[in-house]
Amino acid sequence: MEYLLHILILIGIYMMLSSSLNLVAGYAGMLSIAHAAFYGVGAYTVALMSLNLGTPFLLNIICAIVVCGLFGAVVGIPSLRIKDDYFIIAAFAFQIIAFSIMNNWVSFTKGPMGLPGIPQPNLFGWEISSYPEFLLLTVIMCVVCLLICRRITHSPYGRVLQAIREDEDFALSLGKNVAGYKISVFVIAAMLTALPGALYATYISYIDPSSFTVDESIFIISIMIIGGAGRFLGPVLGAIVLVLLPELLRFVGMPNSIAANLRQILYGAALVACMLWRPQGLVGRADVLRK
């Protein structure tokens, strides 16, 4: 039972991560490989605040949202000048820098030893400690996050994001402030990662830099692409499929040492299969074929 709840919580975390990435990458077309870095910034902000300052959970989340938003603006700025492949490299650089700081600034982040004993969250006197309680918190956060994403994507704002993805000059010629949209969507997406970051840190109660690597970013991107980039339901479905897929390996009695490697192979195979047969993702429009 606990296992099942754990899986559901993980699905919720990845739904939030990939849905927020979808705003930037799926809608606005800026494939950011820095999403795990934002996630890490959120998790570390919450962990460090609750461990060092003992501040309440809600305040920690708010601070994490602000800090993530600031980092989002930092990564968003290069997107104004460079596009496509070059932007991917710039975001990739940010991901590496963020990981290196988490890993090497030992006096602040404890480096690879990580931060153990992160206190469990307390929301208005509600002590969250058991699996069902964490699942409830996950559901609340997930609903808030998805509602924000849906509001953004199903609006004139979201339409402009798609226009920027397809043709920036066309959007400019129609009077859309492309630079403003790029920065603001980056800030929003980064702010949203503070939610799963806070949840992860307090749920596992231990974080170390290895949870926020490039691999994690790529996993989040895979969820979005396999589910369907640029569609609201894409990352939602993608998170369910990609979190459950490797769990199936447990039931065929695979020893853990093999299953861990097989998991990577499985993700790769799923991506290739998706590119071959459903390039628009699981929920994409049938007539959309991305170039």
Binding site: I152, P156, R159, Q162, E166, D167, S173, L174, K176, G230
Partner: peptide, 29 residues
């Protein structure tokens, strides 16, 4: 030709209207 090819025709037209309050985050919220 410049258009937003991967979205429906009507969305292209709706994109072109000026002064849409929903294009800004504060009114959206």
């Amino acid at each position: 030709l410049r258009l937003i090819r991967q979205v429906p025709v009507i969305e292209n037209v709706m994109l072109a209207f000026r002064h849409q309050s929903g294009e800004h985050l504060v009114p959206l919220a």
